[in-house]
């Protein structure tokens, strides 16, 4: 053992140093790149028809419930207008974590607070509508998982273009908001 160590200590040392230098340089470089990737602000599409449609729907809903005494629907309209996507404009600059806030606001506040604990509890909701909402929740959960994975596993992300990634996720989130506003609009017609 001693003879072996005497013979090969130097070679083992050089190997260890080599592995350490390669591994640590790779870790440092990939982490710096990933931090820059997540910190980048990206312009989203300036001809965002879905966002404009969503805002039109909110105005229609507001007008529909303005004189109504139905507080459960008023609440969800208030939540959709108060914060989240309504504050964004076409061609806005967004970062990865902004998407996460938008999606979480949709899931936790609008769906859970506005729809489930307000509309669903106080009104009879059609099964088909419930199924649509369930699909929206699934989509939002999927987006949430994607955003969490991309922000945590730096090795997979760096091959993708940040602009494409943000725009793709953003469109999915806008679509969710739009679909929900259309569902509520349809429900408002039946009241």
């Amino acid at each position: 053992m001693k003879a072996f160590l005497k013979e090969y200590t130097e070679i083992i040392m050089y190997t260890i140093c080599g592995i350490l230098i390669i591994l640590s340089s790779y870790t440092i470089i990939i982490n710096i790149n990933h931090a820059r990737y997540l910190n980048k602000e990206v312009f989203v599409s300036d001809k965002d028809h879905n966002l404009i449609k969503f805002k039109d729907n909110i105005i229609k809903l507001e007008n529909a419930f303005n004189n109504s005494s139905n507080n459960t629907y008023k609440r969800i309209v208030y939540l959709m207008k108060n914060d989240g996507l309504y504050k964004k404009i076409p061609g806005d600059k967004l970062r990865y974590k902004d998407l996460y806030f938008l999606n979480n606001y949709f899931l936790d506040t609008i769906i859970n607070d506005g729809y489930i604990s307000s509309i669903k509890v106080n009104n009879q909701v059609d099964k088909i509508v419930d199924k649509y909402i369930y699909n929206l929740i699934n989509n939002a959960n999927y987006i949430c998982r994607e955003l969490e994975n991309n922000s945590n596993y730096q090795y997979d992300v760096l091959n993708n273009d940040i602009r494409d990634a943000i725009n793709e996720q953003y469109q999915m989130i806008v679509n969710n908001y739009l679909q929900l506003s259309e569902i509520i609009l349809e429900m408002s017609d039946n009241i």
Partner: peptide, 23 residues
């Protein structure tokens, strides 16, 4: 080699505590 290794550990620690861009 050890300095690079230790800096890599510090980078990971730093991002864990301070990188608020990670969701």
């Amino acid at each position: 080699a050890s300095i690079l290794g230790i800096i890599a550990i510090i980078v990971i620690d730093y991002r864990t505590i301070f990188d608020s861009d990670m969701v």
